[in-house]
Design a protein around this nucleic acid. Sequence first.
RNA 1: GGAGAGGUGGCAGAGCCCGGUUGAAUGCACCUGACUCGAAAUCAGACAUAGUCGCAAGGCUAUCGGGGGUUCGAAUCCCUCCCUCUCCGCCA
Length: 441
Amino acid sequence: MIDLAFVRANLAAVEEKLRARGMDPAAALGDFAVIDRERRNAITEVETLKAKRNKLTEEIARLRKSGADATAQTEETRSLKADVEALEARAAESDQRLQTILQSIPNLPQDDVPVGADEHGNREEKTWGTKPSFSFEPKAHWEIGEALNILDFNRAAKISGSRFVVHYGAGARLERALANFMLDLHTREHGYTEVLPPYMVNSRSLFGTGQLPKFAEDLFHCDDKGAYVPGELQEGDHWLIPTAEVPVTNLLRDETVDESQLSISLCAYTPCFRSEAGSYGKDVRGMIRQHQFQKVELVKFTTPDKSQQEHEALTRHAESVLEHLGLPYRRMLLCTGDMGFASSKTYDLEVWLPGQGLYREISSCSNFTDFQARRANIRFRPAGAKKSEYVHTLNGSGLAVGRTYLAILENYQQADGSVRVPEVLIPYMNGQTVISRQERF
RNA sequence: GGAGAGGUGGCAGAGCCCGGUUGAAUGCACCUGACUCGAAAUCAGACAUAGUCGCAAGGCUAUCGGGGGUUCGAAUCCCUCCCUCUCCGCCA
């Protein structure tokens, strides 16, 4: 959520930023100025009346105490009741309208984010590695995996449906090896603390990171008490996490930390569950787009003055995974039109997939500034200051394990259909250097 | 699933039975000042959050888990939901 006072004071700038995001400012902001005025007027009126009422009740208390008659005051207060209620309703309504507007406004892009309508406006910042050359026609990962009997899409469809996969034997171990390698790298060399959070969260958490209320249809809701009502934050309901960002960022929800504790760097390996509503027919083959995939997520809480450099650092931490694995990639700076709702600046890392001859997103590293912190009420107390401020939150995939897995299949495939194990993973694979065709059970 | 206890400020913890200057005692932490070369200790003071009015000084309003009710007035009484803890049952 962006700051109400900021919108009020910088309306033109906000409109400009929304336009850069490809939104119609008029539609997004509605009658912001009018509603804001209305709301403040209503609040002033109701508070004036309440102040009057409170004075009267105090007087009643004083009169009663001294044994005097307070009937007149009691009657007068009683007569105010209807007016107070009516004004309160009016104030609540305009406040609700304003909140609805504010909650639906995305974070504002930073000034160095290129303006663009969609992914074509993204800017390639760098490339790393050498694309492998093959003496044969490189295959897509689903062909490789099924031929090796390490991936099974058919049985996954049988037991769960489309957009699921089953891993067998060395394939299952490769997934596990990747997760362990990534966690070890981030905890040992990059200073992150490992967290194992719940895979189900409540509505408040999803509101805090920005998935609710706008993006409910992307999530799996598993309320045991009935259907989710869009736009309504119910307590005690459960959702499957779409990313570890949600539980991990919300760890500090409604908390105030000392500045000396920042930055806090956490990483978590979790499954992620996404409904993929709206992507029908897209990436139906293989394991690019699944309802469930595993991911190692990096999350940082920091101060406003350090968030830019932390964003660069976090992105480097994600990149170093790809570099250790020897997977060619490029870094894209997302343009205004392609960024996520809560982000102020996002780098996507795209890995080279020779089997398909293209780059695919494997990590997304964003600086959310105070956008999530305001929604989730996460603050810090600056050293020596009385007043607390909102922290800045950041996160990035480090990396999406499923996509790393398929990138390895495609980049490390050999003429005989086997797949070499990247050097750094060999210890995690019990010394196994090649994944060859295995028996299917 | 059954029974009971409880949710109060950054933290701990009074107040609730018997509704009224209680935004809330007390302790700790944090901040400022004094003492000190400096620190510790000690003393004094300040110290919730949000909204809103105001150039400002400073007011005002709301908030004691969420929502609703009773009342002139609710942290305190009633209803309801959520959460935590203890015991029992079941279970990885």
